[in-house]
């Protein structure tokens, strides 16, 4: 469904993405793991053109795009088929929970307000936030804001949702509620690409795990193989550091 090939990106002299290839099939849940600064977030942002790659090819629903030379129109079309969930939620601060979800439907997709609100309430129900539809972001906890962020993403009926560390800004006790919403979506067969540091979650929810280091994909595979018998030395180090931390 969605394929990217040989994606390159540098910030000044720093090579952040160094020839990334990635294929996303329908109903895939791909978790991208890796140390800080390995380029995970940049990769995700390039897939949605929030950051423009220096080079690379994207094939989306059979149509090919040059990731560096792409028209505004094509970017808008791709964005309409994708959704993005941010690390720090980025809810519209001047809009209520429901308005956050309906804004894109009403303004960008010209949907009648009533229809949009029905879809919006359905999405909020899905993430367990229907009773707070009238709250502004600053009246909600981080976990609640992120759930609204997810409702905003699913409301537009995207082909794929991109999650950029959706729980990294949350207090530990709030992480669970967000992860269980994402698990729910996985069960429904939603296609997702998730950058995360939650190892157990990645193991349980993903259909494929990708490990990135210094701008490259150094290992990928199904979650069981990946977590029980990683082949790459960097992956082993990385997973060990998590194990050690868990054992304290």
């Amino acid at each position: 469904m969605l394929e990217i090939k040989n994606v390159q990106k540098s910030f000044d002299d720093l090579k952040v993405l160094d020839g990334i290839d990635l294929t996303v099939e329908k109903k895939d849940v791909i978790c991208i793991l890796g140390p800080s600064g390995s380029g995970k977030t940049t990769l995700l942002r390039c897939m949605n053109y929030l950051t423009k790659a220096d080079a690379g090819e994207m094939i989306f629903d059979g149509e090919s795009f040059d990731m560096n030379h792409i028209s505004k129109n094509d970017i808008a079309r791709i964005r309409r088929k994708t959704a993005f969930v941010f690390q720090n939620y980025n809810l519209f601060r001047n809009k209520t929970a429901l308005e956050n979800v309906t804004e894109g439907l009403i303004i960008a997709r010209k949907m009648p307000k009533k229809e949009a609100e029905e879809i919006g309430m359905k999405a909020l129900t899905k993430v367990g936030m229907a009773d707070r539809f009238n709250y502004y972001p600053h009246q909600l906890s981080g976990g609640q804001q992120q759930r609204v962020g997810i409702a905003r993403a699913i409301a537009t009926d995207p082909e794929v949702i991109l999650f950029d560390e959706p729980t990294s800004a949350l207090d530990p006790e709030l992480i669970g509620e967000v992860l269980s919403v994402i698990k729910e979506l996985a069960k429904d067969g939603m296609t997702m690409v998730i950058v995360t540091h939650e190892m157990n979650f990645a193991r349980n929810v993903s259909t494929k795990v990708i490990f990135m280091d210094r701008g490259k994909i150094v290992e990928e595979g199904n979650p069981d193989d990946f977590f029980t018998s990683p082949k790459n030395e960097r992956t082993q180090q990385f997973l060990n550091s998590f194990k050690n931390r868990m054992e304290g």
Partner: peptide
């Protein structure tokens, strides 16, 4: 915050 603009882009707004 710049994220407000990015969030707008991501829900399809210009």
């Amino acid at each position: 915050p710049k994220g407000q603009l990015e969030a707008g882009y991501c829900v399809g707004m210009s």
